[in-house]
Nucleic acid binder design. Structure first.
Lengths: 205, 205
DNA sequence: ACATCATTGTTTCCAATGGCTACATTCGAG
DNA sequence: CTCGAATGTAGCCATTGGAAACAATGATGT
């Protein structure tokens, strides 16, 4: 039944937390219809507010997309974090877990991922950059770990991290773009990790 | 001076080859302003034709984007072809050349690349798929070459090709997205190739 | 309590876009 | 030379993002 503040199905003048409602709806639309089809007015209609209301929370369509990208990086960071927490001690297993987590996040949130690395965000969108670095930083940490354990070659840690990150990122892009069958994802991830570990292990002297 | 068929600055009723004119203008706009900003009416205005004229050549905005993606794959294929033709005999050098060619094409045509692997094309866009496979096939051929020379491990050729392709693709995505400084491109490509060759070389028995 | 100001929504308007239909001009095959 | 097929044009519509002026609500200080 309608709450006290919502008599006869009427929404009170103030929504309460429009911002998060918009973000939620936007995330769903993003997943279901892609970023191109995401319309501010559509969201407003769905939520039941006037089409100009969202403007109070997102100055721009781009601002909304930026916010989505930011939360995307936060989510990705979380996924990586738990994947690493659940992993055992074996470095290979840790890498595999992290990469696999990334791959699944990326393929289950294709449109979001595209948004995240489209780099179209506002010049001053430091929040996105921060969130991205927080997520990416875990990969770098992981590499550092491998280097300290003597399983990975020394040298520019970030560069090695970029290569690992890029490889997974590329695989998911191909899957998301339909160039590669989605069923091959796990198999590819596994092969990529193995290649990586072999390619980046210390040279025998 | 105005040609015979173009008296007093007047364009004849029929443009002559509107289709290619549109493609050209679209390619330029794509490069300069990205796919999002690409407007059919804008192109029509620029070319000096009515806003509905492009419709005779591209049923849809998407159809135009599809066509752009297709030519993109053709261009990429060409770039790979010449890069391989110019390479020496050393397998490592051949891989490096091809990968480098890809990387530069991808970073110099960021928006186009995004379009190419966005996978948003029409379900029945076989031409795109064909063009893509023609380009991608060269990578697979290259891998096969390495396998026959005993420089790369045997096993699923396509899978190995995908990993190589994905790695470069990922690197360029990061560069294009601003996550990585563009100046690091060559250095990254080199490292990636080296990692790849070490990671995919035959295991000693 | 109450006046006042900042938030948050609403309404109304505008320009631009993609897309559609009916119509005009030109080209080319028979 | 005629007539149908291509190719362009003009005008219309719905939708969108965005801006401005106005309305309702919430919060704050006295």
């Amino acid at each position: 039944m309608a709450g006290v503040t919502e008599p006869a199905g009427q929404r009170p003048y103030h929504h309460g937390n429009l911002r998060s409602a918009i973000l939620e709806a936007a995330a769903r639309h993003l997943r279901e219809h892609g970023a191109d089809q995401l319309s501010l007015r559509d969201l407003a209609r769905e939520i039941g507010v006037s089409h100009a209301a969202p403007r109070r929370h997102f100055t721009d369509r781009q601002a909304l997309l930026d916010a989505l990208a930011e939360t995307g990086f936060v989510q990705l960071g979380g996924a990586l974090r738990t994947s690493l927490a659940e992993a055992g001690d074996s470095f290979a297993a840790r890498v595999h877990n992290a990469v696999s987590a990334f791959a699944h996040f990326a393929t289950e949130n294709a449109a979001l991922l595209e948004l995240m690395n489209s780099g179209k965000h506002r010049p001053g969108a430091t929040r996105i950059v921060d969130a991205a670095e927080a997520a990416f930083g875990q990969m770098v940490e992981l590499i550092k770990e491998g280097q300290e354990h003597g399983v990975l070659e020394r040298g520019d840690t970030e560069r090695i991290g970029i290569i690992l990150y890029a490889t997974v990122q590329g695989i998911t892009t191909m899957v998301n773009g339909g160039m590669v069958d989605a069923e091959k994802l796990d198999e590819l991830v596994e092969a990529a990790v193995e290649h990586f570990l072999r390619g980046a292990r210390p040279r025998v002297r």
